[in-house]
């Protein structure tokens, strides 16, 4: 039996089933379920991606996803959070990450799911390798994500 089905914070090699992630946060007291779906983009600054490869430090990545869930619960105690991130080789338009947050009122669900994706890009040990027709590169400090001039997140980022 696949035990991963009940895990709210999951790194997987399989395609992500959006409904499965949503079902994990469904709640009779929820008035809203917000989902964020991160997909593989073809063009970045004029450069064409052929496919991506994601790698992760799986046990720590799942721990850090769970930490993000705990951080959300501090602000929104009635929230339910589930996050699944896929690793391995992904094609253009494939789903890389699904975040689902349910809360009694919609505003909190929007805020929390936004928080979760930004936080993933700060503290969760997952790496993306871009493959182009003229080469490949492990991506680190991308312009659209937070960069670490000192080489690592500040205490504040990690706390």
């Amino acid at each position: 039996m696949d035990v991963s089905i009940n895990k709210h914070f999951l790194i997987t090699n399989e395609a992500v089933d959006i409904q499965e992630v949503v079902d994990k946060v469904s709640d009779r007291n929820a008035g809203a379920i917000n989902t964020f779906i991160g997909t593989v983009r073809e063009m970045t600054k004029g450069k064409k991606t052929l496919y991506l490869k994601y790698d992760a430090y799986i046990p720590m990545a799942e721990k850090k996803l769970e930490q993000i869930g705990d951080e959300i619960l501090k602000d929104f105690p009635e929230a339910k959070v589930a996050i699944t991130h896929r690793i391995g080789e992904l094609a253009i338009s494939d789903i890389a990450v699904v975040i689902a947050v349910s809360t009694p009122h919609r505003n909190d669900a929007f805020t929390a799911s936004r928080y979760a994706i930004e936080r993933i890009k700060e503290i969760v040990p997952i790496w993306k390798k871009e493959h182009w027709d003229d080469g490949e590169k492990w991506m680190g400090d991308q312009l659209e994500t937070k960069s670490y001039p000192s080489g690592k997140p500040s205490e504040e980022d990690l706390s």
Binding site: G38, Y54, A56, Y57, M60, A61, H85, A96, V97, I117, I120, K121, E122, I123, V124, P125, I126, W127, K128, W138, M139, G140, D141, Q142, T145, S147, Y148
Partner: peptide, 10 residues
């Protein structure tokens, strides 16, 4: 001990 390069998930 793990050495974690700048992350790029999401």
């Amino acid at each position: 001990v793990a050495f974690i390069p700048p992350v790029s998930g999401g």
